[in-house]
C-alpha cells in the first residue's frame, strides 16, 4: 500500500496553501449565491406565504 511517491519534502515555512485558499473562495461564492437563490424561491416567487 506504500503508494506515497514523494518527490520532495516541504516544510511548514515553505508551504503556503494557495490552492486551498482558491478552492475555499469558490466555495464561499457558491454558498452566497445559493443562499440568495433559496431566499428568492421561498419568499419572493409568489404563492401563499406565512406572515405570522
Amino acid at each position: 500500500m506504500g503508494t506515497e511517491s514523494r518527490e520532495k519534502e516541504i516544510s511548514h515555512d515553505e508551504f503556503d496553501p494557495i490552492g486551498t485558499l482558491a478552492l475555499i473562495a469558490v466555495y464561499f461564492l457558491i454558498l452566497v449565491v445559493m443562499w440568495i437563490v433559496m431566499w428568492y424561491a421561498e419568499f419572493l416567487d409568489g404563492g401563499p406565504t406565512v406572515v405570522g
Binding site: 514523494r6 518527490e7 516541504i10 496553501p17 486551498t20 475555499i24
Partner: peptide, 16 residues
C-alpha cells in the same frame, strides 16, 4: 474544511 484541504494540498505539492 481549510485545515484538512491544506493538509491534503501539502501532500499534493510534495508529490509534485
Amino acid at each position: 474544511a481549510f485545515t484538512v484541504v491544506a493538509s491534503v494540498e501539502h501532500g499534493a505539492r510534495q508529490r509534485g
